[in-house]
Protein backbone atom coordinates (compact mmCIF):
# COMPACT_ATOMS: atom_id res chain seq x y z
CA UNK A 1 0.00 0.00 0.00
CA UNK A 2 2.72 2.43 1.00
CA UNK A 3 4.74 1.45 -2.03
CA UNK A 4 1.68 1.97 -4.22
CA UNK A 5 1.09 5.43 -2.80
CA UNK A 6 4.69 6.42 -3.37
CA UNK A 7 4.53 5.27 -6.98
CA UNK A 8 1.29 7.19 -7.40
CA UNK A 9 3.03 10.39 -6.31
CA UNK A 10 6.03 9.73 -8.53
CA UNK A 11 3.80 8.89 -11.46
CA UNK A 12 1.73 12.03 -11.07
CA UNK A 13 4.86 14.18 -11.00
CA UNK A 14 6.18 12.56 -14.14
CA UNK A 15 2.75 12.79 -15.70
CA UNK A 16 2.54 16.52 -15.05
CA UNK A 17 5.74 16.98 -17.05
CA UNK A 18 4.50 14.81 -19.92
CA UNK A 19 1.17 16.59 -19.89
CA UNK A 20 2.77 20.00 -20.36
CA UNK A 21 4.73 18.74 -23.35
CA UNK A 22 1.67 16.94 -24.71
CA UNK A 23 -0.26 20.22 -24.73
CA UNK A 24 2.15 21.58 -27.32
CA UNK A 25 1.61 18.59 -29.59
CA UNK A 26 -2.11 18.64 -29.30
CA UNK A 27 -2.41 22.40 -29.92
CA UNK A 28 -0.32 22.31 -33.07
CA UNK A 29 -2.12 19.24 -34.30
CA UNK A 30 -5.43 20.88 -33.61
CA UNK A 31 -4.61 23.96 -35.64
CA UNK A 32 -2.35 22.70 -38.41
CA UNK A 33 -3.14 18.99 -38.47
CA UNK A 34 0.55 18.19 -38.39
CA UNK A 35 2.75 16.37 -35.92
CA UNK A 36 5.28 18.88 -34.71
CA UNK A 37 8.15 16.49 -34.63
CA UNK A 38 10.60 19.02 -33.26
CA UNK A 39 8.55 19.63 -30.12
CA UNK A 40 10.47 17.09 -28.05
CA UNK A 41 13.71 18.79 -29.02
CA UNK A 42 12.30 22.17 -28.07
CA UNK A 43 11.60 20.72 -24.65
CA UNK A 44 15.23 19.60 -24.49
CA UNK A 45 16.36 23.13 -25.42
CA UNK A 46 14.13 24.40 -22.63
CA UNK A 47 15.85 22.07 -20.18
CA UNK A 48 19.25 23.44 -21.18
CA UNK A 49 18.10 27.04 -20.99
CA UNK A 50 16.80 26.42 -17.48
CA UNK A 51 19.96 24.68 -16.37
CA UNK A 52 22.10 27.54 -17.66
CA UNK A 53 19.88 30.25 -16.25
CA UNK A 54 19.66 28.57 -12.89
CA UNK A 55 23.43 28.16 -12.64
CA UNK A 56 23.99 31.71 -13.83
CA UNK A 57 21.51 33.07 -11.29
CA UNK A 58 22.91 31.15 -8.34
CA UNK A 59 26.63 31.25 -9.04
CA UNK A 60 27.23 34.42 -11.06
CA UNK A 61 24.49 36.73 -9.80
CA UNK A 62 24.45 35.10 -6.40
CA UNK A 63 20.71 35.27 -5.87
CA UNK A 64 18.89 33.09 -3.38
CA UNK A 65 17.41 29.82 -4.58
CA UNK A 66 13.73 30.88 -4.66
CA UNK A 67 14.52 34.02 -6.64
CA UNK A 68 16.72 31.98 -8.98
CA UNK A 69 13.82 29.60 -9.54
CA UNK A 70 11.50 32.41 -10.48
CA UNK A 71 14.10 33.85 -12.85
CA UNK A 72 14.63 30.41 -14.36
CA UNK A 73 10.92 29.94 -14.83
CA UNK A 74 10.59 33.15 -16.80
CA UNK A 75 13.75 32.61 -18.80
CA UNK A 76 12.79 29.03 -19.66
CA UNK A 77 9.31 30.05 -20.70
CA UNK A 78 10.29 33.15 -22.65
CA UNK A 79 13.41 31.94 -24.40
CA UNK A 80 12.04 28.50 -25.24
CA UNK A 81 8.98 30.19 -26.67
CA UNK A 82 11.32 32.26 -28.82
CA UNK A 83 13.00 29.10 -30.07
CA UNK A 84 9.61 27.58 -30.85
CA UNK A 85 8.57 30.70 -32.70
CA UNK A 86 11.75 30.74 -34.79
CA UNK A 87 11.42 27.08 -35.69
CA UNK A 88 7.91 27.69 -36.94
CA UNK A 89 8.96 30.80 -38.82
CA UNK A 90 11.95 29.19 -40.53
CA UNK A 91 10.97 25.59 -41.08
CA UNK A 92 7.18 25.34 -41.17
CA UNK A 93 5.67 28.57 -42.38
CA UNK A 94 7.15 28.44 -45.89
CA UNK A 95 5.71 24.93 -46.22
CA UNK A 96 2.12 25.81 -45.34
CA UNK A 97 0.91 24.94 -48.83
CA UNK A 98 3.35 22.10 -49.47
CA UNK A 99 2.51 18.40 -49.64
CA UNK A 100 1.66 16.83 -46.31
CA UNK A 101 5.00 15.10 -45.81
CA UNK A 102 7.17 18.15 -46.41
CA UNK A 103 6.68 19.81 -43.01
CA UNK A 104 7.20 16.48 -41.31
CA UNK A 105 10.57 15.95 -42.98
CA UNK A 106 11.49 19.54 -42.28
CA UNK A 107 10.55 18.98 -38.64
CA UNK A 108 12.72 15.87 -38.41
CA UNK A 109 15.53 17.92 -39.94
CA UNK A 110 15.02 20.68 -37.37
CA UNK A 111 15.14 18.21 -34.52
CA UNK A 112 18.38 16.69 -35.83
CA UNK A 113 19.86 20.17 -36.19
CA UNK A 114 18.82 21.26 -32.71
CA UNK A 115 20.08 18.09 -31.07
CA UNK A 116 23.47 18.35 -32.69
CA UNK A 117 23.63 22.07 -32.15
CA UNK A 118 23.14 21.58 -28.43
CA UNK A 119 25.59 18.68 -28.39
CA UNK A 120 28.20 20.89 -30.06
CA UNK A 121 27.50 24.10 -28.19
CA UNK A 122 27.17 22.64 -24.71
CA UNK A 123 28.98 19.33 -24.91
CA UNK A 124 27.55 15.88 -25.42
CA UNK A 125 28.09 14.61 -21.89
CA UNK A 126 25.21 14.37 -19.45
CA UNK A 127 24.92 17.51 -17.32
CA UNK A 128 24.35 16.90 -13.62
CA UNK A 129 22.80 19.44 -11.30
CA UNK A 130 22.94 18.82 -7.56
CA UNK A 131 19.50 18.73 -5.89
CA UNK A 132 18.21 22.24 -5.43
CA UNK A 133 16.33 21.59 -2.27
CA UNK A 134 16.04 18.38 -0.40
CA UNK A 135 13.47 17.10 2.00
CA UNK A 136 9.75 17.02 1.94
CA UNK A 137 6.75 15.90 3.90
CA UNK A 138 6.40 12.40 5.23
CA UNK A 139 2.90 11.28 4.47
CA UNK A 140 2.97 7.84 5.91
CA UNK A 141 5.46 5.80 7.86
CA UNK A 142 4.81 2.12 8.31
CA UNK A 143 8.15 1.36 9.88
CA UNK A 144 9.87 -0.26 6.92
CA UNK A 145 8.68 2.02 4.15
CA UNK A 146 8.29 5.76 4.20
CA UNK A 147 5.98 7.54 1.79
CA UNK A 148 7.16 11.05 1.20
CA UNK A 149 6.20 13.96 -0.96
CA UNK A 150 9.26 16.02 -1.71
CA UNK A 151 9.20 19.80 -1.95
CA UNK A 152 10.24 19.50 -5.56
CA UNK A 153 7.26 17.31 -6.36
CA UNK A 154 4.99 19.79 -4.67
CA UNK A 155 6.48 22.66 -6.67
CA UNK A 156 6.03 20.71 -9.89
CA UNK A 157 2.40 19.87 -9.19
CA UNK A 158 1.53 23.37 -8.03
CA UNK A 159 3.23 24.93 -11.01
CA UNK A 160 1.45 22.57 -13.39
CA UNK A 161 -1.90 23.35 -11.82
CA UNK A 162 -1.20 27.07 -12.04
CA UNK A 163 -0.14 26.89 -15.65
CA UNK A 164 -3.15 24.78 -16.53
CA UNK A 165 -5.47 27.32 -14.94
CA UNK A 166 -3.82 30.20 -16.78
CA UNK A 167 -3.81 28.27 -20.00
CA UNK A 168 -7.47 27.32 -19.73
CA UNK A 169 -8.31 30.92 -19.02
CA UNK A 170 -6.41 32.08 -22.11
CA UNK A 171 -8.07 29.53 -24.35
CA UNK A 172 -11.61 29.92 -23.12
CA UNK A 173 -11.86 33.57 -22.11
CA UNK A 174 -9.57 35.74 -24.21
CA UNK A 175 -9.77 36.96 -27.80
CA UNK A 176 -6.57 35.12 -28.52
CA UNK A 177 -8.06 31.84 -27.36
CA UNK A 178 -11.21 32.44 -29.34
CA UNK A 179 -9.18 33.03 -32.49
CA UNK A 180 -7.19 29.92 -31.75
CA UNK A 181 -10.30 27.80 -31.38
CA UNK A 182 -11.77 29.27 -34.53
CA UNK A 183 -8.67 28.32 -36.51
CA UNK A 184 -8.87 24.85 -35.07
CA UNK A 185 -12.37 24.41 -36.43
CA UNK A 186 -11.96 25.93 -39.84
CA UNK A 187 -8.89 27.84 -40.81
CA UNK A 188 -10.16 29.19 -44.09
CA UNK A 189 -13.39 30.46 -42.61
CA UNK A 190 -11.51 32.04 -39.75
CA UNK A 191 -9.27 33.92 -42.15
CA UNK A 192 -12.30 35.10 -44.10
CA UNK A 193 -13.68 36.54 -40.90
CA UNK A 194 -10.59 38.64 -40.38
CA UNK A 195 -8.47 36.49 -38.14
CA UNK A 196 -4.76 36.71 -38.86
CA UNK A 197 -4.16 32.99 -39.24
CA UNK A 198 -0.37 33.26 -39.42
CA UNK A 199 -0.35 35.09 -36.14
CA UNK A 200 -2.59 32.53 -34.49
CA UNK A 201 -0.33 29.73 -35.65
CA UNK A 202 2.72 31.58 -34.35
CA UNK A 203 1.00 32.08 -31.02
CA UNK A 204 0.16 28.40 -30.89
CA UNK A 205 3.80 27.51 -31.34
CA UNK A 206 4.85 30.13 -28.81
CA UNK A 207 2.46 28.86 -26.15
CA UNK A 208 3.32 25.23 -26.85
CA UNK A 209 7.05 25.91 -26.69
CA UNK A 210 6.65 27.99 -23.54
CA UNK A 211 4.89 25.12 -21.78
CA UNK A 212 7.54 22.71 -23.06
CA UNK A 213 10.17 25.06 -21.66
CA UNK A 214 8.58 24.89 -18.23
CA UNK A 215 8.44 21.10 -18.52
CA UNK A 216 12.13 21.16 -19.40
CA UNK A 217 12.86 23.23 -16.32
CA UNK A 218 10.91 20.79 -14.16
CA UNK A 219 12.75 17.79 -15.50
CA UNK A 220 16.10 19.49 -14.97
CA UNK A 221 15.35 20.30 -11.36
CA UNK A 222 13.55 17.04 -10.60
CA UNK A 223 15.94 14.50 -12.06
CA UNK A 224 19.01 16.68 -11.85
CA UNK A 225 20.59 15.34 -14.99
CA UNK A 226 19.97 16.20 -18.64
CA UNK A 227 21.66 15.58 -21.95
CA UNK A 228 21.03 16.59 -25.54
CA UNK A 229 19.13 13.41 -26.29
CA UNK A 230 16.33 13.60 -23.70
CA UNK A 231 13.95 15.24 -26.15
CA UNK A 232 13.45 12.20 -28.33
CA UNK A 233 11.91 9.75 -25.88
CA UNK A 234 10.08 12.42 -23.94
CA UNK A 235 8.70 13.68 -27.23
CA UNK A 236 7.32 10.29 -28.22
CA UNK A 237 5.84 9.75 -24.80
CA UNK A 238 4.22 13.14 -24.74
CA UNK A 239 2.82 12.51 -28.17
CA UNK A 240 1.49 9.20 -26.91
CA UNK A 241 -0.11 11.11 -24.08
CA UNK A 242 -1.71 13.55 -26.52
CA UNK A 243 -3.09 10.68 -28.59
CA UNK A 244 -4.26 8.79 -25.53
CA UNK A 245 -6.19 11.81 -24.34
CA UNK A 246 -7.57 12.45 -27.78
CA UNK A 247 -5.46 14.58 -30.06
CA UNK A 248 -6.72 18.12 -30.43
CA UNK A 249 -8.34 18.00 -27.02
CA UNK A 250 -6.58 20.19 -24.47
CA UNK A 251 -7.88 18.60 -21.25
CA UNK A 252 -7.25 15.26 -22.95
CA UNK A 253 -3.55 16.05 -23.33
CA UNK A 254 -3.19 16.72 -19.63
CA UNK A 255 -5.17 13.61 -18.71
CA UNK A 256 -3.15 11.53 -21.15
CA UNK A 257 0.07 12.90 -19.70
CA UNK A 258 -0.94 11.95 -16.19
CA UNK A 259 -1.98 8.47 -17.31
CA UNK A 260 1.27 7.89 -19.17
CA UNK A 261 3.24 9.06 -16.14
CA UNK A 262 1.30 6.72 -13.87
CA UNK A 263 1.62 3.78 -16.24
CA UNK A 264 5.33 4.31 -16.52
CA UNK A 265 5.81 4.60 -12.78
CA UNK A 266 3.74 1.53 -11.96
CA UNK A 267 5.20 -0.54 -14.76
CA UNK A 268 8.74 0.23 -13.60
CA UNK A 269 7.79 -0.51 -10.03
CA UNK A 270 5.93 -3.76 -10.46
CA UNK A 271 7.18 -5.28 -13.71
CA UNK A 272 10.44 -4.43 -15.34
CA UNK A 273 12.18 -1.13 -15.77
CA UNK A 274 13.83 -2.17 -19.03
CA UNK A 275 10.54 -2.61 -20.79
CA UNK A 276 8.81 0.54 -19.57
CA UNK A 277 9.07 2.19 -22.97
CA UNK A 278 7.61 -0.90 -24.60
CA UNK A 279 4.66 -0.60 -22.23
CA UNK A 280 4.09 3.01 -23.25
CA UNK A 281 4.21 2.28 -26.95
CA UNK A 282 2.01 -0.78 -26.63
CA UNK A 283 -0.57 1.41 -24.95
CA UNK A 284 -0.30 3.87 -27.80
CA UNK A 285 -0.94 1.11 -30.33
CA UNK A 286 -3.78 -0.37 -28.31
CA UNK A 287 -5.51 2.98 -27.86
CA UNK A 288 -5.25 3.81 -31.53
CA UNK A 289 -6.61 0.45 -32.57
CA UNK A 290 -9.54 0.28 -30.22
CA UNK A 291 -10.33 3.94 -29.70
CA UNK A 292 -8.58 6.05 -32.33
CA UNK A 293 -10.13 9.25 -31.06
CA UNK A 294 -8.55 8.82 -27.64
CA UNK A 295 -10.28 9.23 -24.34
CA UNK A 296 -11.67 12.74 -24.72
CA UNK A 297 -11.31 13.35 -28.45
CA UNK A 298 -14.15 14.03 -30.83
CA UNK A 299 -14.58 11.47 -33.60
CA UNK A 300 -13.86 13.24 -36.82
CA UNK A 301 -16.14 12.70 -39.72
CA UNK A 302 -14.65 12.35 -43.16
CA UNK A 303 -16.40 14.46 -45.72
CA UNK A 304 -16.02 14.17 -49.44
Amino acid sequence: MEYFLQQLINGLTLGAIYGLVALGYTMVYGVLGMINFAHGTIYMVGAFISLITFLAATTVLGTSVPLALVLTLFAAMGLTALWGWSVERVAYRPLRAAPRLAPLISAIGVSIVLQNFVAQAQGARAKPLPPVFRGGVTLMDSGDFVVSLSWMQMVIMALTLGLMAAFTWVITRTALGRAQRACEQDMKMASLLGIDVDRVISTTFVIGAGLAGVAGMMVTLYYGVIDFYIGFLAGIKAFTAAVLGGIGSLPGAMLGGLLIGLIEAFWSAYFSIEYKDVATFSILVAVLVFRPTGLLGQPDVEKI
Binding site: A102, P103, S106, V113, Q115, F117
Partner: peptide
Protein backbone atom coordinates in the same frame (compact mmCIF):
# COMPACT_ATOMS: atom_id res chain seq x y z
CA UNK B 1 24.32 19.30 -38.15
CA UNK B 2 24.77 19.70 -41.89
CA UNK B 3 22.64 16.62 -42.52
CA UNK B 4 19.67 18.01 -40.61
CA UNK B 5 20.19 21.42 -42.16
CA UNK B 6 20.20 19.89 -45.62
CA UNK B 7 16.92 18.14 -44.90
CA UNK B 8 15.28 21.42 -43.96
CA UNK B 9 16.79 23.40 -46.81
CA UNK B 10 15.90 20.89 -49.51
CA UNK B 11 12.35 20.78 -48.24
Amino acid sequence: LAFGGAMVLIM
